[in-house]
Simulated assay, not measured.
Amino acid sequence: GDFQPSNELKLKMYALFKQATEGDVTGKKPGMMDFVGRAKYQAWEDLKGASADEAMQQYIDAIEELKA
Rank of each mutant, 00 (worst) to 15 (best):
G1W: 11
G1F: 11
G1L: 12
G1H: 13
D2P: 11
F3I: 15
Q4W: 14
P5H: 04
S6K: 02
S6F: 02
S6R: 08
N7S: 10
N7E: 13
E8M: 01
E8L: 04
E8H: 08
E8P: 00
L9Q: 12
L9Y: 06
K10F: 01
L11H: 04
L11S: 06
L11G: 03
L11Y: 07
L11P: 01
L11Q: 10
K12L: 02
K12Y: 04
M13L: 01
M13I: 01
M13V: 03
M13K: 03
Y14K: 02
Y14N: 03
Y14Q: 00
A15Q: 01
L16T: 06
F17G: 11
K18N: 02
K18F: 00
K18V: 00
K18H: 00
K18A: 05
Q19R: 01
A20G: 07
A20L: 04
A20Q: 09
T21I: 12
E22C: 01
E22G: 01
G23W: 06
D24S: 03
D24N: 01
D24C: 04
D24H: 05
D24G: 05
V25E: 12
V25K: 12
T26Q: 15
T26E: 15
T26R: 13
T26P: 11
G27E: 07
K28L: 13
K29G: 08
K29A: 15
P30F: 06
M32V: 14
M33V: 13
M33N: 13
M33E: 14
M33Y: 11
M33L: 14
D34N: 10
D34R: 09
F35R: 14
F35N: 11
F35A: 13
G37V: 04
G37W: 04
G37E: 09
R38K: 09
R38F: 00
R38D: 03
A39S: 04
K40N: 07
K40L: 02
K40E: 03
K40V: 04
K40Y: 01
Y41R: 07
Q42S: 09
A43F: 03
A43N: 08
E45W: 10
E45F: 01
E45P: 04
E45V: 01
E45A: 11
D46K: 14
D46G: 09
L47N: 11
L47A: 09
K48V: 01
K48Y: 02
K48L: 07
G49Q: 11
G49H: 09
A50H: 10
A50G: 06
A50D: 10
S51T: 13
S51Q: 12
A52M: 00
A52N: 09
D53K: 07
E54W: 05
E54R: 05
A55W: 10
A55L: 07
M56C: 02
M56D: 05
M56I: 05
Q57F: 12
Q58I: 03
Q58F: 06
Q58H: 15
Y59P: 06
Y59I: 08
I60S: 02
I60E: 10
I60K: 08
I60W: 00
D61G: 07
D61Y: 04
D61Q: 11
A62H: 09
A62G: 06
I63L: 14
I63Y: 11
I63R: 15
E64N: 14
L66E: 13
L66R: 15
K67Q: 06
K67Y: 03
